[in-house]
Write a protein that binds this DNA or RNA. Structure first.
Length: 285
DNA sequence: TCGCCATGTCCAC
DNA sequence: TGGACCTGGCGAT
């Protein structure tokens, strides 16, 4: 599940569930002994940068990256004591009224302000950051002979993008995934960036990646009317039913018809990840 | 029940 | 560039 929208929503959830109050912390699985240093301390803040989550717990900084398979659902206790951890829980946080179980993370560590700054500094602009400097992404992209498909997964170009947004956004802009970054026009990059700034917040609000034109229109209509804040707040990060039917233009649709031109969608392995794209109508730079 | 795959990243060759 | 690592779900057996 975890592209940038997931982590930003998670940060918000952690702030709301635990912010300002002490938490009990432990590592049921036993692989994060430092959890003891968080136990009983107050959660001061939680922030997402791209796919990285940093939680300030008094003097400590907890650094979490979910990787490909990690999850960190934040669930209400609802009166009952926290159920015993099911599966391999690396870190459990228990507050007055919520419990959060971290499983399968790529990173779960205590860190220093200096290291956090270094991690953040290495990231490119984050479309979910209102102060993001998109020009930094462009500078990196335009100087590279690597393909646009590779570059969109480079967190130094745009922080928080993952494989779904990459495939979908390349298709939305009819971009040839195999053209080098250096061939992309400034106008193409700006249109791409503007689209990401539009799409990622929908992902945060609905807890799912929304890239189909009709769904985007409906999602924006609901957001403009502030009709989904309760829905957004109710999301826990657990697998639940989706607000919109889960569908994409190209992602995981190999062999099916491109919704724009009808040509069969292709799946290529690129750097270990599966690139889904339409070889017929994705021809621009 | 098994094996494969996944919205990620790093490291060794 | 291929494998390692982390976990869970699903389709094939």
């Amino acid at each position: 599940m975890p592209e940038g929208h997931t982590i930003h929503a998670l940060a918000e959830r952690v702030r709301r569930a635990f912010g300002g109050r002490p938490v009990a912390a432990c590592s049921p699985q036993g692989r994060f002994a430092e959890a003891a240093r968080l136990d009983g301390a107050r959660v001061l803040d939680a922030r997402a940068y791209g796919k990285h989550l940093f939680v300030d717990v008094e003097a400590e900084i907890l650094h979490v990256h979910l990787g490909l398979i990690g999850s960190f659902p934040v669930l209400p206790l609802a009166g009952a004591p926290a159920a015993p951890p099911v599966g391999r829980v690396r870190l459990r946080l228990v507050g007055d009224d919520h419990v959060a179980d971290l499983r399968g993370p790529l990173i779960c560590a205590l860190t220093t302000p200096e290291h956090r700054d270094a991690v953040v500094a290495a990231l490119g602009p984050d479309p979910l950051d209102p102060n993001a400097a998109e020009g930094r992404g462009w500078d990196r992209l335009r100087r590279s002979r690597r393909t646009v498909a590779e570059l969109l997964l480079d967190q130094g170009v745009a922080a928080g993008l993952g494989n779904v947004y990459r495939c979908e956004v390349l298709h939305r802009h009819r971009l040839d995934p195999y053209s080098p970054g250096s061939a992309l026009t400034r106008a193409s990059w700006e249109a791409l960036w503007t689209d990401l700034v539009r799409l990622l917040p929908l992902g945060v609000a609905f807890g799912q990646i929304v890239t189909m034109p009709d769904d985007i229109v409906e999602a924006e209509r609901l957001l403009a009317r502030d009709a989904v804040s309760d829905y957004t707040a109710s999301l826990t990060g657990e697998r639940l039913g989706d607000y919109f039917e889960r569908r994409f233009a190209v992602y995981q649709r190999a062999g099916e018809a491109c919704p724009r031109c009808g040509h069969a969608i292709r799946a290529d392995k690129v750097g270990g990840r599966t690139l889904y794209w339409c070889p017929s109508c994705q021809d621009r730079h």
